[in-house]
Amino acid sequence: MIRLQDVTKVYEGGSVAVRDATLNVPRGEFVFLVGPSGSGKSTLIRLMLRQDDVTRGSIWVAGKDVTKMPSWKVPFLRRSIGTVFQDFKLLPNKTVAENVAFALEVLGRPRSVIQRQVGQVLELVGLDDKAERKPKQLSGGEQQRVSIARAFVNRPPIMLADEPTGNLDPATSVGIMRLLDRINRTGTTIVMATHDHAIVDAMRRRVVQLEAGRIVRDQSSGRYEHIEEVPVALPPVEDVVADLAELAEQHSAAESGTDEAPVETDS
C-alpha cells in the first residue's frame, strides 16, 4: 500500500531529515514509526502526503508514485489518505459535525450523503451526542476523536497519524488507540508516528525505528525499545484490547476523571 525506495530528504540549509529510507507497508497493516524528536518520523509522513518533495528516491502510495505526481493531482492523493495530528487541526468556529462535514464538502459531496456519513462516523467515534458542540467545549481526547472522524469519514484506504496521542494523557490515549485499532480492522492501513512507549509496547504491532533519519530497526510485533528477544507471535486482537483496557483502568485509578476535563492545547 505504501512503499518507500531509498528515500532521502535534505531540507534547505542542508539538514538531512531522512536518509536512504526503504520501507514497504502492505495493505491493512498497522505500523508504528518510533524514534526521538527530529529522527525523521514527521518528515516521512509529510513526504507521503506530498507536503514536501523528496530529494532522492521514490514513494508509492496506493499504487501511485507520489514523487512524480503533478501538483494538480496531489489533492486526489490526499483524498485517499486520512490524516490525524497531535494538535487535532480542528476549525474552532465550526461545530463537531461541521468539522467532519468539511472534509466531504470540499470534495463536493451532496448534502444528504454528507449528513448520513457524518452521523455514522460520529457514532463510530462515540461523539454522536456532541455533534453540535464547538471543539473548545470538548476534552482533548474528544477533539482527537473528532479529527479521527474527519480523517475517516471519507473511508480512505490509508491513515497517517503523527503523534495522535502526543497531547493526551495515557488513559485518553488508550481510547484513541482503541479507535485506531478498530479502524485498522476495517482494512485501513495505518502508519502512526509516536514516541509513546506504553502504547507501542501494549499494541505489539510492526515497529519501524528511526534514528537521525535512518531506519535502524523494522520489527514485526515489536516494542518501543529494541530488546533482543525471541520472536513473539502476534497476540490476538482481543488480548490487545484487554491489555489496553487494563492500562486504562490503571491510569483512571491514578488520575480519576481526566478524560472529561478540557485539555489545554496549543493549536
Binding site: 502526503l49 501538483s71 494538480w72 489533492p75 486526489f76 492523493l77 490526499r78 483524498r79 485517499s80 490524516t83 487541526k89 476549525l91 468539511f102 472534509a103 470540499v106 470534495l107 463536493g108 474527519r150 471519507n154
Partner: peptide, 16 residues
C-alpha cells in the same frame, strides 16, 4: 491559513 491548510490536507483541489 489554518482552514486552508486543513482543506489541503483533506484533499480540496486548489481551485476549490
Amino acid at each position: 491559513r489554518e482552514e486552508i491548510g486543513i482543506m489541503k490536507l483533506v484533499g480540496a483541489s486548489n481551485w476549490f
